[in-house]
């Protein structure tokens, strides 16, 4: 177990290095002129200004020297200037991140609880009405594009019923923040509202969150439901489940204590996939609901060809995913004795 952890931890720096090399490789698909223009804030005054900038930033040097310089820059946290956010890319990431974290936390909770519960339900009642309903739901969920689902939600709950608005928070809360009557400790409105003891703000924030949360999570429900179902079906056919039943244990004990726990082991490997789905989904969801997180920022930047922001965002995603996968694998080894003993 310890050897496994150490081996995985030793691999981490190499993977991170690979991630940076990779992002730089994509970045250097742009011509030197193009990359130089990313550093410009003004129209060049003289004809050779471009050449001077290319020279100044070392864009005419061999590729490995450029990479080395770039790596030094990003290790210092200097990812360049984000034209979309009007601040340095690193600061922009930190600025937009809390909103995304808030959204993701709210989205993950129903995903994990509801998805697993429905999956178990579906497997236990295999080929009954509920199983078929769940399978169809999972298939439709898997096939319906996030952006269509989001727009349909907006169409009904915002444009027609006026229940849930898009955006992050109502204007009156923003005014209170500016006035200083509402203090943002964590930059996450739901938590700040509780810290300030303001239930009206909490409610307002929830009203804004509910549609993005559902949009972000329903694909994941479908995914988790499917995996839990098939894993549970497999477990239910194991001999020890039969033994448990033969012992005369109650069905609920057999399912919850004996089968479900073991069926969860393969589900745990889904952690990485769920993270990927979350990171992908955030871009689309935030764009549709005009929710000011890193996803919307990245999508805006991509359309405006603000490459430095996009590259910074990708780098962030890569690092997050590498670390996230490591955590999932270690957790998996912790849960499953078969991996631990290898």
């Amino acid at each position: 177990m310890l050897a496994y952890i150490i081996r995985r931890l030793l691999l981490l720096p190499f993977l991170l290095l690979g991630v940076t090399i990779f992002v730089f490789a994509i970045f250097s698909l742009l011509s030197p002129e193009m990359r130089a223009s990313l550093y410009l804030t003004d129209v060049p005054k003289s004809p050779d200004a471009m050449q001077r900038i290319i020279h100044k930033y070392g864009l005419d040097q061999p590729i490995y020297i450029q990479y080395w310089q770039w790596l030094n820059q990003i290790i210092r946290g200097d990812l360049g200037w984000s034209k979309t956010a009007q601040r340095p890319v690193f600061e922009a990431l930190l600025y937009y991140l809390p909103a995304t974290v808030e959204l993701s936390l709210w989205a993950m909770l129903p995903v994990i609880l509801v998805g697993i519960w429905l999956g178990i339900l579906s497997a236990v009642h295999q080929d009954k009405l509920i199983d078929h309903t769940m399978r169809v739901f999972a298939l439709v969920g898997w096939s319906l594009p996030t952006f269509v689902f989001g727009l349909l939600m907006l169409m009904y709950f915002y444009a027609k019923l006026q229940w849930f608005p898009p955006g992050q928070i109502s204007d009156w809360v923003t005014r209170e923040v500016i006035n200083g009557t509402f203090i943002r400790y964590t930059q996450m409105y739901t938590i700040d509202a509780l810290l300030n003891g303001r239930l009206d703000v909490f409610w307002d924030s929830l009203r804004h969150l509910i549609m993005p949360v559902i949009t972000l999570s329903y694909v994941q429900w479908a995914l988790l439901l499917r995996v839990t179902r098939s894993s549970m079906l497999e477990t239910l056919r194991q001999e020890y489940v039969m033994t448990a039943r033969a012992k005369g244990l109650k069905e609920s004990v057999v399912i919850n204590k004996h089968a479900a726990r073991n069926a969860m082991i393969p589900v745990a490997t889904m952690g990485g996939l769920l993270l990927i789905g979350l990171l992908n989904g955030v871009v689309i969801t935030e764009t549709i609901f005009n929710y000011p997180g890193i996803g919307r920022w990245a999508a805006d930047a991509a359309i405006r060809l603000d490459i430095l922001s996009v590259v910074g965002f990708t780098l962030f995603n890569g690092v997050l995913l590498v670390v996230g996968n490591l955590v999932v694998d270690l957790l998996y080894a912790f849960i499953d004795p078969r991996v631990r003993l290898e």
Binding site: L15, V19, I276, L279, N280, A299, V310, G318, L321
Partner: peptide, 17 residues
């Protein structure tokens, strides 16, 4: 290394570049 990026995010970056 290719797998270290979320599919859609990587595709967006590539398309932008």
């Amino acid at each position: 290394v290719f797998l270290a990026f979320p599919f859609l995010v990587a595709a967006i970056t590539m398309a932008a570049v």
